[in-house]
Simulated scan of single mutants.
Amino acid sequence: MEEIIRARGHEHVSATHASTFEVTSDDWLTPAGDCILAVEADRTPADFDREFVAACRDSDARIVAAFEAGERTETVVGRGHPELSFEDDRSAVGRTSDYVDDRTIMVGAEKAAEGFDREFVAALSDGAEVTVTLSVEPADGKGEQDR
């Protein structure tokens, strides 16, 4: 199962946050937003299919966020959590911790914003268009092709 978000970078993207990464539907960003990778997202967690959300609520589910900006790609792997609600209508946040709120799209992420390749971050700070593909593999290990 997949959900796709299209957004763009911003001149203030610094990607220096140590425990989260974020994509927001806001059209602005201040230098203080050090976890934000992209703005003007065309979709938010509140828009995601309920079946996708249900699959992410399994603590054993594997969630992958694949970021593509031009020819550059970055991937973050995390996991699901029973309390994921996907109710926020503004931002999608991946977390290295187990903290969950209505913006959280994965917990236990293998990296946060500071872990993104600096060339990728430079492209985002130059305003590159970015596509974020979120996919979830249920705990049974069977992807769409196996069902």
Rank of each mutant, 00 (worst) to 15 (best):
S125W: 14
R6K: 15
A7E: 11
I36D: 00
G115Y: 02
E2R: 13
A92V: 06
T44W: 00
L124W: 09
S59L: 15
F48G: 01
T96S: 12
I36F: 02
S125R: 09
T24P: 12
L37T: 05
D42G: 03
Y99I: 08
R57P: 00
A18W: 12
E40A: 11
E40R: 06
D101V: 00
G94F: 07
H17D: 15
T75L: 10
M106P: 02
L134H: 03
K142V: 14
K111G: 13
V130Y: 04
G78H: 05
I105P: 07
I36Y: 01
T24R: 08
A15Y: 11
E22C: 12
D34C: 05
E119G: 14
D27R: 14
A65Y: 06
S14K: 15
A112E: 11
C56D: 00
C35L: 02
G108S: 07
R72N: 12
L134F: 09
E119Q: 14
E119M: 09
D98E: 11
R72I: 07
R50I: 07
R103S: 01
C35Y: 02
F120E: 01
V39K: 00
D89L: 06
A128H: 04
D98R: 12
D98K: 10
P138G: 10
S91Y: 03
E74H: 06
E110S: 09
H17F: 05
E119T: 12
L124T: 03
V121T: 05
T131F: 11
D47A: 07
D42E: 04
L84D: 00
I105D: 04
